[in-house]
Design a protein around this nucleic acid. Structure first.
Lengths: 323, 323
DNA sequence: TTGAAAGCGCTAACAT
DNA sequence: ATGTTAGCGCTTTCAA
């Protein structure tokens, strides 16, 4: 049996109330009593039961984090910052990998509600999740429009797309192809595509429907060189896709950057360590994390002054050797 | 105010017990009553409060996952699998990034205990954490010896080191250097170093004390080429270090693999996408995750038959272009 | 400065 | 087949 507050009280010869007071530093306690209680806590190696506390307080200090997969440099970097900042706020993070599946995401969202999380950060979205519609539940989204009442944090996707494509044009590309994830209006990342379409005369976008399967991505890219052998520039909507482009180019003996220039998107630390030659658009990942947590905390604490529904942070072109 | 079981009971015109029975599918309930209750649940959009349930059952279905940083391909892949498998077992994962800091790790461990986690998976270890010593707390460790009573899961580090070094020898290296993290007896990953020392005549190991700082790593590697210009082979204790070796080699105009051969360690999907040319030792990450969760679950459920304290899974040499 | 008692939302004996 | 009651471990009025 776990040691509980009552055991501490008995050993210290005081009432449970007094022990609670010492634990929470509330009300008046004589130094003598405090000492007795503290000694008892040490002696019994007592840890307060936060579940019981949460039940009473109706506050768990849990935050749910829903993302497609943590095994992706962008999300793992984002998650690292989010968890770190949350921990400064006293929040604990429950990790949920939806794998992009509606059923999984739905059941995670419901699980989080049953566990009484104080709020959720959602970086993934499949339509039709009722749980997100509850206006009482504090949620912030990253790069996804969940509902009109849920604030969205993200970087300047249009500007990122513009910087990428303009750079390809500036370095002489004539036939630029864009590769993106599934076409989906619910995410502002589609603005990367929009910028591309606005800047290029005859835009051609290839859609990747299974981002989790690198072989499928490679097959699509091979198809591109088959369909459009004149391609001399690729703007990939994330760095992993860009990496696969480089892989396929090498396999087809296409020289990068001489014959083909490639720009990726995200600019994580992991990619800059493993693939330092990649030219990419760097998102301000730490800022996104910080902004999301601060915003969520404001909603939870009901201290929101700024009711902005979409926060857009600046991006940066990082020039390296692939473009 | 959140809707609670009692509200459902009132609306359905039954007692709270009956509602609880419907929710948990326990005992006899007439179809009629069940229907009434289910309708009330729908109408009120009721979600059971798992905090209250946990308090009663003394079972939270929470698992704490402590690792140095999720923003590392090995840990993010491991965490993905662990979370996935946990979710099949009905466990929810609380993510803790210790950043290798004793104070952080200690406070995470205590937080997890206060939150009444059913168990913990620890992939990080700083000596002197009392919380791990509680024999009542189910823990499994990955690649770290926390205490004699805590089972350790990992891959065959000695064999991995042997495969890596033997391969470098086989492809003709005469002066092989090893780069490893901080020398620390508490982790079986030191067996990678041991294998190196057993296989090489005049072993020289460089220690990296700050794995989180790529620039420091690069500086150490530059130092190697300064101290030992004859170096023609490097066995790095992880792929990120290996990547930095390649970066520095390029900077110093050392041709890989002609003048220098490099073997890494881990063989994650992320590295194989971003740095496909790297020769490395692949750990069976999914198996490690699966084994850890199954073992932890056995300890929690007290159904452990196999009391093995160290489970060692096989590794594999993945030959690519850097060696 | 301290204690007694009620209750957070749920479950499970034990009754009926 | 359903309801009554007590209690999980804690906090907080309220009283002393």
């Amino acid at each position: 049996m776990q040691v509980k507050l009552e055991d501490v009280a008995k050993l210290a010869g005081v009432s449970p109330t007094t022990v609670s007071r010492v634990l929470n530093n509330r009300g008046y306690i004589s130094e003598k009593t405090r000492k007795k209680v503290e000694d008892a806590i040490k002696e019994l190696n007592y840890y307060p039961n936060d579940i019981a506390r949460s039940l009473f307080k109706k506050r768990t200090n849990f935050i749910g984090l829903i993302l497609p997969t943590i095994n992706n440099p962008f999300f793992s970097e984002l998650a690292l910052y989010i968890e770190n900042i949350c921990s400064n706020y006293g929040f604990k993070v429950i990790l949920c990998n939806s794998l992009g599946q509606l059923e999984k995401e739905k059941s995670y969202a419901e699980m989080l509600i049953r566990h009484q999380v104080d709020g959720m950060i959602v970086c993934s979205y499949n339509r039709g999740i009722e749980a997100y519609k509850n206006p009482k539940l504090p949620i912030v989204a990253i790069d996804h429009y969940l509902s009109p009442t849920i604030p969205v944090i993200g970087s300047d996707n249009y500007e990122g797309g513009r910087l990428a494509v303009q750079h390809l044009i500036d370095v002489g590309c004539k036939s630029i192809i864009h590769i993106n994830g599934p076409f989906d209006l619910e995410t502002p990342t589609q603005n990367r595509r929009k910028a591309y379409e606005d800047l290029v005369e005859k835009p051609i976008t290839y859609e990747l429907n299974n981002l989790f399967n690198e072989e499928a991505t490679a097959a699509t890219i091979r198809q591109i060189f088959n369909d459009y052998p004149e391609t001399d520039g690729i703007f990939a909507s994330d760095d992993l896709i860009a990496a696969t482009c480089l892989k396929v180019a090498q396999e087809l003996h296409i020289d990068v950057p001489k014959q083909l220039k490639v720009v990726g998107y995200d600019g994580t630390q992991t990619v800059s360590s493993l693939l330092p030659q990649l030219t990419t658009i760097r998102q301000p990942i730490e800022d996104i994390a910080k902004t999301a947590v601060i915003k969520l905390n404001e909603i939870i604490e009901e201290t929101q002054n700024d009711k902005t529904m979409e926060i857009i942070l600046p991006v940066q072109l990082v020039k390296n050797r692939t473009a």
